[in-house]
Write a protein that binds this DNA or RNA. Structure first.
Lengths: 188, 188
DNA sequence: CTCCTCTCGAACAACCTGTTCTGTTATGAA
DNA sequence: TTCATAACAGAACAGGTTGTTCGAGAGGAG
């Protein structure tokens, strides 16, 4: 009894989520219709609405798979060391991430992903001694914006690079300025 | 004869664009229908399709007003000095920018705005002596991503700050790292 | 095996789209 | 001012999507 739910329910939800990812990769998020989804998932129309109120709800359920954006940061190593593991994780789940965060993805998901990452960044900066305030908020936005932009372009294959290269340029680009602006020591 | 077009044409197109901006601010881009648009603009259905093939075409026509993202950078002052004038311009056109680039805006416009800004950033870095290559591409993405993230949050009023504050934190956060990573001197 | 949940598939009204048509009005040129 | 014409309004249209409802049937839990 995985998850304590009927096997049929698992099968149905999984089929719908899988179908959504496939269809987003083919046509982008917005053009995907519920009719497309149930055709691809081979599921009855009423069945769909028994599980999800609309298309967007499927999106959010698929989002759980992107929980790596919530990974707890380490505060002892070099700054923003969440970066390398995340890029590696993104590479492993490239299909999913491209569907959700890539160019063809929806706007809502991007905002959600950004907010997850913001928490990670803010937490690390606070742990390193930054003081809460407007400047911290701005800096967090910069760091998050830069990282997410890299991820978006990377999964869309507008950038060709290895996780290590992405990580190196990302950290080298934002860490010095941000840490100095917040008066935080570079290494612990 | 402004623009050498029939006055009725100007009136119609303007009304439709204005209606789109209003409706995006009220409900977001995606839920806006052509039927909404023509009702708000008080324009006949056939008239709409005589001017635009679809909703998205209106969006792109409104985009022309955001040409300030294409402003030519100066290469003599401090790095990334396009930032302050742009933030000021954004403040003046807050309504429009929020509709197009803000949370309720569409994904396509965001990509378009990002690509405009990327050109500006890349041009400046090349003028400062950076060498073309993968590292430059990554750095440009970081800078652009950080800037656009600030703009998005600012117009959506998730950040409260003056253009000068935004400019200061933005430049302080990204300039040192990026210039160092590209082996470019800090000041000319 | 039995019961109950889940699923199927059809049918539905309501909405939106993009096109076509006819008749009307405003515009710019003469 | 007059006038030909380009632009407009408004209705009607087929085709597609949405979200709901219903009864019949299949599949899993116990």
């Amino acid at each position: 009894m995985s998850g304590n739910v009927d096997r049929r329910v698992r099968r149905t939800r999984q089929a719908i989520q899988r179908a959504l990812v496939e269809l987003i990769l083919e046509k982008g998020y917005e053009p995907v219709t519920v009719t497309d989804l149930i055709a691809r998932a081979d599921v009855g129309r009423s069945t769909f609405y028994a599980h999800y109120p609309d298309k967007q709800a499927v999106l959010f359920s698929a989002l759980e798979e992107m929980a790596f954006l919530r990974a707890a940061p380490r505060h002892d190593g070099p700054p923003f060391s969440f970066s390398l593991p995340m890029f590696e994780h993104v590479r492993e789940q490239r299909r999913l991430v491209r569907a959700l965060l890539g160019r063809r993805g929806g706007r809502v998901v991007m905002a959600y992903g950004e907010s997850l990452l913001e928490d990670v960044v803010r937490e690390e900066l606070l742990a390193r001694g930054a003081r809460p305030g407007a400047t911290l908020d701005l800096a967090v936005t910069c760091v998050t914006g830069a990282f997410m932009a890299l991820v978006r372009k990377w999964v869309d294959e507008e950038l060709r690079a290895t996780p290590a290269e992405l990580d190196a340029v990302f950290r080298a680009s934002v860490a010095p300025g941000v840490l100095a602006a917040l008066e935080v020591p570079g290494q612990s």
